[in-house]
Design a protein around this nucleic acid. Sequence first.
DNA 1: GAACTCGTGTTGTATATACAACTAGATGCA
DNA 2: TGCATCTAGTTGTATATACAACACGAGTTC
Lengths: 214, 214
Amino acid sequence: MAGGSRIPSEAKLVEQLGASRMTIHIALRDLSAEGVLLRRQGAGTFVAPRRIQSTFLELRNIHAEIESRGNRHSTDVLCMEVLNCDMAVATEMSIAPGSPVFHSVLVHRENGSPIQVEDRYVNPQFSADYLEQDFTTITPNEHLMAAGPLEEVEHVVQAIPADESNSALLDMKAGDPVLLLRRRTWSRGMIASSARLAHPGARFSLAGRMSVKH
Amino acid sequence: MAGGSRIPSEAKLVEQLGASRMTIHIALRDLSAEGVLLRRQGAGTFVAPRRIQSTFLELRNIHAEIESRGNRHSTDVLCMEVLNCDMAVATEMSIAPGSPVFHSVLVHRENGSPIQVEDRYVNPQFSADYLEQDFTTITPNEHLMAAGPLEEVEHVVQAIPADESNSALLDMKAGDPVLLLRRRTWSRGMIASSARLAHPGARFSLAGRMSVKH
DNA sequence: GAACTCGTGTTGTATATACAACTAGATGCA
DNA sequence: TGCATCTAGTTGTATATACAACACGAGTTC
C-alpha cells in the first residue's frame, strides 16, 4: 500500500476481521511503534512514508546516484569469470573452499571519470546466470536485487592507501587515500554476494542524514 | 539498574502500583519492544544489556566502543575555547557569522594509542556550560546527549590524506589515509553541534549490519 | 466572509476477566 | 545420582466495557 494512504478504522477492522477492538488496537499500536503505520488520534491510521534512511545502510545504487546528480554513468567490464574459491573467499562467503564462485571486476565512471572499482564475488547458488548479464546496461546490484529478496546487509568502511591496481583504475597516485566500502548481502538464507567497492577519496564521500525517533 | 537484573513480576507491580495487570503488562511490553527490557514467558522480566550496535547511523560513542572491546579509553584535551565564528563555521552551524561558538579539540586513545581526533563546535544556545565540563571523565557526546533530545543526525564519511596536524596527533605519516567522519546533530530545533572525527585509516573501520524489513 | 459551536468518528487509555504457554525449581522415584 | 514429573509462578493473548482526547467537517451566528 502506498505511503500516506489511509487504512480502515479500528471499528471497521473489528467488523471485517471479527476480532475485538482491543486486539486490533494493540496490533495497530505495535505496527505504529515499528514505524510501519502512523496514527493520529481523532484523525485515523495511515501507512507510514518510506523510512528516512541514509545511504550508509541502504543498498546504495551507484547508477541511480550518479543519474540523480544529473551525470552520465558508464561501466567498464574488466573481468567476468568463474573460479574455485580460495580459503579467504570461502570464509568471506561462508561456502566450502574450492567450490566455484562467480567473480567480476567493473569500473564505474561518472562523466567518464572513474568513481568506483567494484570487485565482486557471487554465490552461484544464489544467481546461476550472473555471468551471462551485460553489466554495461544493468548493474550487478540491480541484477542481484531482482534475483532474490534482500534479507541482510553488512557494511564495513575503511580508508586505505591505493595499491597499484586501484590507483591505475581510479586515476590516482599509489598511496592516495581510497574509501573502501565492503558489502556483504544475505538472501534466501545464504550469503548472496560479497563486494569491495573502492572509491577515490578525493572525489567521493558517503553521506547520510536521519531523523531520530522520540 | 544493571543490565541483566530482574525486575518485579507483573503481579507484584500490580500490588505496588495499584494499576491493573493489563496496564502494567502493556507498559512492560512497550519497554520490551524498545529494547529496554527483556521478557521471557514463564521466566520473568529483566533489564536488557546495553545495546550492542556500533552502526553508522546510531550515535557512535567512542568511549563505549573502546570499553566494549575490553580496552582502556583515555582522552587528551588539547583545546577548550569560545570564539567568534567565521563564515565557514557559521554556515556549518546555521548561526550568524561572528556570534560566539564553543570549540574543543580532543584526542581519544585506545590503550594509549590515538584512535580519534575530535574537533567539535557547539552551539552555546544548546549547551551553555559546555566549556565547564571535564572531558577526561565524560565525553562531549555524553554531555550533549544529556543536554537535549537528539532529533536528527547527519553523517558524511570521507577518506582524506592526513595533514600535518592530524598526522602528528594520530601517530601517522603525513599523507597517510585518514577516515574522516563529519557529524552534525540537531536538537531543540537548532544545530547543537558539528564535529570532525578523524581516525587513522590503518587502525580503524566503521562497520554496520542490518536486517532488511520485508 | 469569518469565527465559533457542536457532533460524529476516530484513536488513546485503563480496567477486569479468562485461559494458554512457558520456565524453573521442587519433588518423587528408581 | 540421575531422571521424570509435577507445580507454582510468570508472561502471552484475547475479550468486553467504559470513558477520555483529539480531528474535522457541517452548520450556525455575527
